[in-house]
């Protein structure tokens, strides 16, 4: 498969993933182009890979996490133990919409949010997420389980159930 053919088939799907990851149209386009430019430079190696699509996904995820890493060198990607929901999210006040779930998600560390997106949007299993993020399967399990526990602890689940 040629580069152009690949982009014609997968470009929109990559852009969608980039948009879900970033929540911003400009950054999503920039991220997708960064990943595709990397892919173009290494196209021979990518087409020789067993799963070219996974290779390009890794490039996109890597560029995304790299951006966050450069923004904040103090991030602890796989450690959510000390993380607490922000004070503005008060379960007593109720969280009644997906927009509020979106707000809670935005407060998660980038790696935790990325792992959730790869699982619930890209439908990857633990091994696929580990491959895409360049971490171990156990790190993926720990990260997603803590992230879900944090979301549940914020009161999102109960309120979404009540309002759905």
């Amino acid at each position: 498969m040629g580069f152009e053919e690949y982009v014609a088939e997968q470009g929109q799907s990559l852009l969608r993933l980039a948009y879900v990851l970033t929540g911003d149209a400009h950054r999503a386009e920039d991220l997708t182009q960064t990943a595709l430019a990397d892919a173009y430079r290494h196209w021979g190696r990518i087409t020789a890979a067993r799963r070219p699509d996974a290779y390009v996904h890794r490039m996109l995820i890597n560029a995304h996490l790299d951006w966050h890493r450069r923004r904040s060198s103090t991030e602890r990607p796989t450690d959510l133990a000390g993380w607490e929901p922000p004070a503005t999210i008060d379960p007593a006040e109720g969280i009644a919409s997906r927009d509020q779930l979106r707000q809670v998600l935005a407060t998660l560390p980038p790696r935790a949010r990325t792992a959730l997106i790869l699982r619930y949007y890209a439908d990857l299993d633990d091994a696929g997420i580990a491959d895409a993020m360049g971490v171990s399967v156990s790190a993926v399990r720990a990260t997603t389980s803590r992230a879900l526990a944090t979301l549940r602890g914020s009161g999102v689940v109960a309120d979404l159930t009540e309002t759905s």
Partner: peptide, 25 residues
């Protein structure tokens, strides 16, 4: 569970808002 279903719905909703791929290649 409910949270997982809501995450799937939310991410799918977000993906629908993605810009159209122009001249990506």
């Amino acid at each position: 569970d409910q949270l997982e279903r809501d995450l799937r719905a939310l991410f799918a909703e977000d993906a629908e808002r993605a810009p159209a791929a122009g001249a990506l290649a």
